[in-house]
Write a protein that binds this DNA or RNA. Structure first.
Length: 224
DNA sequence: TGCCAGGCCGGGT
DNA sequence: ACCCGGCATGGC
């Protein structure tokens, strides 16, 4: 089995097991961007509470988020944790978004994806995972999202080194998958689901894992 | 009760 | 170039 077939088989096994997940939960691209920042190292349930608070105050409209002061914003997003630093990060992004693109997601995503990624990474508070989440889930651009689940699952299965960097892990996926937005979208969602309910941090038991079909020889052969 | 959750930054080696 | 402490709420 070639590496590409192997990775596709992993994807198909997850899809068969969990069914279509249809990420990202969010009514608009802008809401997805806000959610991507709020969910940094935080469970989605907490983020939803914060999002609902913002929605009630009509703050999921770019101009309104731009206008509100940071202290008030911090109180509204309290349930998502790290609320002071996240309020600052939202402010950093919205300033960039209004000033560079006049608050238009269409304008922001209309240009080159790689260039936009570099710009997003310059915004204090947006790192590689948040940038790729924005590009993929809000902008529908083919950027594969790597997160703690991805690292844990694939290093536990010996397909990547446990010391692999974000970039190395991302390369592992994009070099062995078609550059397909729908595939990237659903694959990451499936990985998160697996990490949440089976391949958890305290359950290293892989016996009932839907992707535990590789032999130990194959794992070594495919590892990067 | 303690640990974990869809990271990232800044300061120190 | 790494390493680490800090950031903080809510659920199991």
């Amino acid at each position: 089995m070639r590496k590409k077939e192997m990775l596709l088989k992993i994807y198909n096994s997850l899809y068969d097991y969990f069914g279509p997940l249809k990420w990202w939960p969010g009514d608009s691209p802008f809401e997805i961007i806000v959610g991507a920042i709020l969910t940094q190292n935080t469970s989605w349930g907490n983020v939803e509470k914060a999002i609902n608070n913002l929605k009630k105050e009509y703050l999921l409209k770019p101009q309104n988020l731009y206008n509100i002061n940071q202290e008030e914003l911090a109180q509204l997003i309290k349930p998502s944790g790290y609320y002071n630093i996240k309020a600052q990060r939202l402010k950093n992004f919205i300033t960039f978004f209004i000033e560079e693109y006049n608050g238009s997601v269409e304008k922001m995503f209309s240009g080159d994806g790689e260039e936009l990624r570099r710009k997003l990474l310059k915004v204090n508070g947006i790192g590689p995972e948040t940038a790729d989440s924005i590009l993929l889930y809000a902008g529908e651009k083919p950027f594969f999202v790597v997160d703690a689940y991805t690292k844990r699952i694939f290093s536990r299965h010996r397909l990547i080194s446990e010391h692999a960097t974000y970039h190395q892990i991302q390369e592992f996926f994009i070099q062995n998958l078609d550059q397909d937005v729908e595939l990237y979208n659903e694959f990451h969602a499936q990985i998160v689901m697996l990490g949440k309910i089976i391949c958890t941090s305290k359950n290293p038991d892989c016996s009932n894992c839907p992707i535990a079909f590789l032999t130990s020889m194959e794992r070594i052969a495919y590892s990067v």
